[in-house]
């Protein structure tokens, strides 16, 4: 059953991933990436874990990609990509490196011979995954919360103190002399 879904879905995911890279408009790239994430969730389902599929939809397609779309639409990206001198140099090197690493990874993938009898059982159900997280993975589970909190605090500080927001020459003239700069931190 799952083998009937896996191969068409894998083809769709690869096609959508190529679309992410090839689409000229970043908004289109983001929408295609949402579809690719949903396809990967389907692949997780085929591979025997409904919990990972749910997490993929919630975290990737839900949280991360909504953030991506929000930023893509905030930032003005409509102008064409200019292929300057740096891009001319980067293109052959990038193709060469990707080709080399791709060949290497494909050799590794092929070297995994078909071992054992694979069954259609659920490998990681929600219940067993939850038990694993609260028993043997309890410490990493707590550490990952620290990582998330550190990221949240970092973003809050970065967007509050305007570290990179240097006033430009024409903006300085517009500010009232002696007046308090708008948007400053009141503390």
């Amino acid at each position: 059953m799952s083998i009937l879904i896996f191969y068409p879905l894998a083809t769709i995911v690869i096609g959508l991933s190529a679309g992410v890279i090839l689409a000229p408009n970043p908004v289109h790239s983001a929408v295609l990436l949402v579809a690719a994430m949903l396809g990967v969730a389907g692949l997780f389902l085929c591979l025997g874990s409904e919990m990972l599929a749910i997490l993929q939809v919630l975290i990737y397609a839900g949280a991360i990609m909504v953030l991506f779309l929000f930023i893509v639409m905030t930032v003005d990206t409509r102008r064409e990509e200019v292929q300057g001198r740096l891009a001319q140099i980067a293109r052959p090197i990038g193709l060469l490196l990707s080709g080399c690493l791709g060949a290497l990874l494909l050799m590794v993938a092929v070297s995994f011979s078909e071992r054992g009898n694979d069954t259609d059982e659920w490998y990681a159900s929600a219940a067993s995954l939850g038990k694993t997280f609260l028993n043997e993975y309890a410490l990493p589970f707590e550490i990952i919360t620290l990582v998330l909190i550190a990221a949240m605090v970092g973003i809050a500080i970065m967007s509050r103190e305007r570290l990179f927001d240097r006033p430009r020459a024409n903006q300085i003239k517009e500010l009232p002399t002696g007046g308090k700069a708008s948007g400053g931190i009141t503390s």
Binding site: I21, L101, L105
Partner: peptide, 15 residues
């Protein structure tokens, strides 16, 4: 590999 090609070949930092 498709993701890595995107990192190497695209000029837009969001892509």
């Amino acid at each position: 590999i498709i993701g890595m090609l995107g990192v190497f070949l695209r000029r837009n930092i969001l892509v």
